[in-house]
Each structure stands twice: as structure tokens, then as C-alpha cells.
Write a protein that binds this DNA or RNA. Structure first.
Lengths: 111, 111
DNA sequence: CTGGATCCCGCGGGATACTG
DNA sequence: CAGTATCCCGCGGGATCCAG
């Protein structure tokens, strides 16, 4: 039943790989399927190209995301999750499930 | 069937509540049961009292952790997860499960 | 024992401008 | 379109010292 040592072993690594406020949000977007650079920018209101590139590069290094370049006249680059990255779906879903149980910060944290 | 809108709704909130490298690690520790201030310090090598207090206070405000003071001669304070905080167990487990599938960063990410 | 006060630092991130 | 380069900033966090 959930060996006590089981979560801790990985939590730290998870935090290392998905550090920063944007990291997880980018993965969440990629969970919908491959995205082009500007597609991600549009899907992530407020993110700067600098940050987006930075996170994406880190994901590449860690084998979470793949970068595919299409040498066409209008340059096209697609970012997609690797199987490893896909595995994050369960984690994100757990986050989402939990958060939905969180009372609105403004609606009487009375509970 | 995991409604596509379901994860995104909460992921952002999760990230807001558990921001920073230490936040999640503190919760992970609290998942083992109530802890006193110094118990947490010992369980989290490298954390400074400043940071620990900071995170703990934030958790209190968000109703994730409760702070119980025992007005004894040797001051005693216990931090425990609220039911809401307990709900994070699934999330942490998901992180741990995923991370265990991550190949060691050193084992040839060369590609 | 618990933890507040200060000071300093690194890093994620924003803004803007510019290139292949 | 897909980035890259530079500069600046806020915040999480470490260190240290001190107080209830």
C-alpha cells in the first residue's frame, strides 16, 4: 500500500525537471498534441519567447519533449511529448483533480 | 474519460499553491504525519528556518496545513495536513510514480 | 524550541529588439 | 515563423543573528 519510500524517491526529481511556473503549463498544453512555437505562445498567454525557448530546450535535454524541424519556406517546428512526457498526464490530472477540490480562495475558506 | 478541460482548470492553481522548490517537499514530509518545526528542519536537509516558516505560513493561509501551538514550557508547535492537504497524497504519488520511470540523467541522455 | 529580521544571491521570467 | 541577445526585476531561498 503505497510504500512510504515510494513517493519521496521521485518527487524531488520531478521538481527538478518541471521547475518554474511555466514548465508544467507547457507540458499541459503539449498534452493536447504537438504544437508549433507560436501555437504554444498563443496557448500560454503572457509567456515570453525567451522563457518558452528556455523551458522547451530544457525539456529536450531531459527527453520529455522532441523538437522536429521542417525545412520549409515558412519555417516550421513542432514540439511533441515523448512517451516519457506523455507519462506526465497522470500527474497533471492528479493536480487538476486535487485543485478542483480546493475551495475558492475568495469564497470563504471557512471549511 | 478525462474531460480535456479538466486538468487545465486546476493545474494553474496547484502551481500557485505549491510554488517554489521546497513547498512540495514539505508537504511530502507532512504526509507521514504531524511534524514539529525542528522535525521538519531535520527531515529537510538544507532548508533554512526562514524558508520553512515562509512556506508553512503560506500553507496555513491556504488551508493546506494547520498549526497547533502547545503553550508548554518548552514551546511546542505541530504542523499537520488538513484534509485538503491530505488530498495532495495522490498528486505526490503520481509524481513519484512518473519519476521512477525517468531514466537516470547520467545514463546516456547523450542523444 | 520556535521563528522573526536583515541582507544577499541566483534563477526563472518579462520586455524589447533583432536575425536566419 | 522561430528563435536569439540583452537588460531588468521579483521572488524563493540561504546565512546569520537575535527574541519570545
Amino acid at each position: 500500500m503505497t510504500d512510504p519510500c515510494f513517493p519521496e524517491c521521485g518527487v524531488a526529481r520531478f521538481l527538478t525537471l518541471l521547475n518554474g511556473p511555466w514548465a508544467t503549463l507547457i507540458v499541459r498544453e503539449l498534452l493536447h498534441g504537438p504544437h508549433r512555437f507560436n501555437q504554444l505562445r498563443e496557448a500560454l498567454p503572457g509567456i515570453s519567447p525567451h522563457t518558452l525557448t528556455s523551458r522547451l530546450r530544457q525539456f529536450e535535454r531531459h527527453g520529455i519533449v522532441t523538437r522536429t524541424t521542417y525545412a520549409e519556406i515558412p519555417p516550421r517546428v513542432e514540439y511533441a511529448l515523448t512517451p516519457l512526457g506523455e507519462g506526465l498526464r497522470e500527474v497533471l490530472e492528479a493536480m487538476g483533480t486535487w485543485a478542483m477540490a480546493v475551495p475558492d480562495p475568495e469564497s470563504g475558506v471557512t471549511a
